[in-house]
Write a protein that binds this DNA or RNA. Structure first.
Length: 276
DNA sequence: ATAATAACCTGAGGGC
DNA sequence: TGCCCTCAGGTTATTA
């Protein structure tokens, strides 16, 4: 469910409630996520102080210190259906509320994930060295990601450009909704081979990815069915979607019917007139 | 190395 | 009401 804008929206919503707080207790009700939650996580985190709440791609990173014990980083991924909310103790438990972090300010960070594709992982290493983070591509909203990078990296890649930009080893954070939207904005057909794009097209696409993701963050993300931010409220970028979920509806620019095809098992939407 | 596919899960919605 | 099918915002592991 959550792509970069939804994860960033979550981060911004929970950050101020967590930083400098001590973790009083960790309650794990379900350990079977994408990877099993390690059994000693409550012991490791009990008494630790949360220093910072940052993001790398679609991962949230909670840096904790625990003197005289070693510190480390809690990594949380929301998968397809996860969310993190700040709640109070009187908030009734819902089905699929898998983990609680009880904090010294009386608040609780609550992880909810029906499909359990998400992850809650602990690493004592610098987080960028963790196996899952070490091979990630650049952040799309930094200068390291630009048209030149996209052009150079895609020269040997015959896969569809939409599949390419959704690959976190090339660039992080772009999921199915925003891949569709960015390609529409750039005027590029999703099924074109990545190595067939001109340098100019690569620049348009990199710029479009930055624009779409930035605007979505400003609007608090996209709520299709169940995304909620740290306060439990939905985003509203869904009102700005130009192609995603709009099969057969008229293109906002030229009124041609939006087409839907399947690309690598993912629903793909584009305007056959505006995107070439 | 590259590329496509299977797999991990639950829940919602449609057709009958 | 219920059963069966398809689909869903992600990513890794496996297979050609």
């Amino acid at each position: 469910m959550p792509e970069l804008p939804e994860v960033e929206t979550t981060r911004r919503g929970i950050q101020s409630h967590l930083e400098q707080q001590v973790i009083i207790e960790v309650v794990v009700r379900e350990t079977r996520l994408r990877w099993l939650i390690q059994p000693d996580l409550p012991q490791i985190l009990g008494g630790a102080t949360i220093h910072s709440v940052t993001r790398r791609g679609k991962y949230l990173l909670f840096t904790v210190t625990h003197p005289p014990h070693p510190g480390g980083t809690l990594l949380i991924h929301l998968g397809m259906s996860g969310n993190l909310r700040i709640v109070t103790a009187d908030q009734a438990l819902q089905k699929h509320d898998h983990v609680d972090w009880v904090l010294s300010n009386q608040k609780i960070l609550r992880y909810h994930d029906p499909r359990r594709f998400g992850a809650v992982l602990w690493t004592a290493q610098p987080p960028e060295r963790h196996t899952l983070l070490a091979t990630l591509g650049p952040e799309p909203l930094t200068d390291a990601f630009n048209g030149d990078y996209l052009y150079q990296r895609s020269r040997t890649q015959h896969t569809a450009i939409k599949t390419w930009i959704m690959n976190s080893h090339q660039v992080v954070g772009v999921g199915n909704i925003y891949a569709n939207e960015a390609l529409f904005l750039a005027g590029i057909q999703p099924q074109h081979a990545a190595n067939s794009l001109s340098l100019a097209a690569c620049h348009r696409l990199a710029d479009s990815i930055k624009t779409v993701l930035s605007q979505a963050i400003q609007q608090g993300g996209t709520t299709l069915r169940d995304f909620v931010n740290g306060e439990g409220k939905p985003g509203y970028f869904q009102q700005s979607l130009q192609v995603y979920g709009r099969a057969q509806q008229p293109c906002s620019a030229c009124a041609s019917p939006i087409q839907q095809v399947q690309l690598n098992q993912r629903a793909t939407y584009f305007c056959p007139q505006c995107q070439s």
